[in-house]
Design a protein around this nucleic acid. Structure first.
Length: 430
RNA sequence: GGAGCGGUGGCCGAGUCCGGUUGAAGGCGCAUCCCUGCUAAGGAUGUGAGGGGGCAACUCCUCCGUGGGUUCAAAUCCCACCCGCUCCGCCA
């Protein structure tokens, strides 16, 4: 959520900032300003009436104490009339405030200054490409992972569909073990600075609103109506709300957490896209890194740290990858700046998004109401949030299987993973 | 699912039965100052958040789990809901 004060002090910056995203978000600015003006006018009038009622009520108490029943009665009548008028204004103010709040919740974040401009995916900027040589892949690596999965019996999409329907996956044997090894490797590599959390995967509506996944994207999430709970689309959701409604001290920031969870996505708008293999599924595993920080400066440091850790993991897994700087047209609604990491999958010849490292400025923290005391100053300030996947699976597994397929069809296990896979250097069909 | 108890400021905790100057005693923590060779201990003062108005001094409103209601006036009375703890039941 954007700070309402910016709508008053610098609406032009909001209009230009939001219009960089494309779409019609900039149009919200004028409507919000209009509602804000009305809300304040109504609210001031209501507050003045309430102040009068308070004074009169105290006088009533005093007069009754003095035994002046008639005097008290006349003040009561006056106060009653003012109170009724205040109530009418209160209802009107609330209605305006509600509309404004809802619009504010649906208005995306301002892109960071240095976020590249662009209209969509095609305009994302490739910052770096690491470990990639298109000539380096042999024929045995040009086999898509869905074929490898069937060949080795480690991915069983058909039976996953039997149990849960299409777009669910199932890992078996070495496949399940490879996935678990990657999860553990990621968690272990972050444990030095990021406290490991195992959060709930079902959360309240408020929790989903804080990260920006609601109210706008309710079609994307699984909702359990009977208990009014949502299945998280990413561990970012519970981690961001861990400190909601709290006032932290500057000394305890930054707070860093990592979490391994299942992630649930309805993929409502993606029917028929990427249906093969592991590229898109309703439930997948992810290790998320999260930092709650005081300001933009700390945020950038944290964002770089998360990116570096994610890169290091891909390096250890022996995968080629590239870093994209998402342009304003492709940036998520809550984010101010996002770097995507895409791993190269030689079998399907695709760059697969395996991680997304974002800085949200104070957009999410304001929604979650997470503040910190200003060091050496008065009052509090809204925190900043940063998060990113250490690693998002299915797709990392896909890139891994394709990259490390040997001429004999077995899969090489890189040294970093060997401790998690019983020490083997490769595995084949069992 | 049933019964009982509870939810108050950064934290702990009084106040709620019997509504009135209580944004809320007291303590802890924190800040500044005093004392002290240093530290500890001790003393003094200050210390909630959000929002409106004002150049400012300042001033007004809101907030005692959440949402309604009663009243001239609600932390305090009434209703609904949420959360926590304990016990019972049920399931693992």
């Amino acid at each position: 959520m954007l700070d309402i004060r910016r709508f008053r002090s610098d609406p032009d910056a909001l209009r230009t900032g939001l219009s960089r995203r494309g779409g019609d978000a900039a149009a919200n600015v004028d409507r919000i300003i209009e509602l804000d003006v009305r809300q304040r006018a109504l609210g001031t009038e209501r507050d003045d009436l309430r102040a009068r009622v308070k004074v009169l009520s105290k006088d009533v108490g005093r007069l009754q104490g003095q035994g002046d029943a008639a005097g008290a009665e006349s003040l009561m009548a006056e106060s009653r009339a003012l109170g009724e008028r205040a109530k009418v204004l209160d209802v009107a103010t609330d209605a305006v405030a509600l509309e404004m709040h809802d619009l504010l919740l649906r208005t995306p974040n301002l892109p960071a200054e240095d976020c590249p401009d662009g209209r969509g995916e095609a305009d994302n900027v490739v910052l770096r490409i690491e470990g990639f040589d298109p000539e380096a892949y042999d024929a045995h690596q040009r086999v898509p992972h869905w074929d490898i999965g069937t060949e080795l019996g480690i991915i069983d999409g058909e039976r996953a569909a039997k149990i849960s329907g299409s777009m669910f996956t199932m890992y078996r044997g070495w496949g399940a073990r490879l996935l678990r090894g990657m999860v553990q490797l990621s968690l272990d590599r972050c444990a030095d600075k990021y406290e490991e959390i195992r959060p709930p995967t079902l959360v309240r509506t408020d929790t989903m609103i804080s990260t920006g996944h609601l109210p706008k994207f309710d079609e994307e999430a699984y909702y359990i109506e009977r208990d009014d709970l949502w299945a998280i689309p990413t561990a970012e959701v519970p981690l961001t709300s861990l400190h909601s409604q709290e006032v932290l001290t500057a000394a305890e920031l930054p707070l860093r957490y990592c979490a391994y969870t299942s992630c649930f996505r309805r993929e409502a708008g993606a029917a028929g896209r990427d249906t093969r293999g592991l590229l898109r599924s309703h439930e997948f595993d992810k290790v998320e890194l999260f930092a709650l920080v005081a300001d933009a400066e700390q945020a950038v440091t944290s964002q770089n740290d998360i990116l570096a850790r994610s890169e290091a993991l891909l390096g250890e897994l022996g995968l080629a990858y590239r870093i994209l700087d998402l342009c304003t047209g492709d940036l998520g609604g809550s984010a101010a700046r996002t770097w995507d990491i895409e791993a190269y999958a030689p079998g399907c010849d695709l760059w697969l998004e395996v991680s997304s490292v974002s800085w949200f400025a104070d957009y999410q923290a304001r929604r979650a109401n997470i503040r910190h005391r200003i060091a050496g100053g008065k009052g509090t300030d809204v925190c900043h949030t940063v998060n990113g996947s250490a690693m998002g699976w299915p797709r990392t597994v896909a890139a891994y299987l394709e990259t490390h397929r040997q001429p004999d069809g077995s899969i090489a296990v890189v040294p970093a993973l060997q401790p998690y896979l019983a020490g083997v250097t490769s595995f084949a069909r069992r």
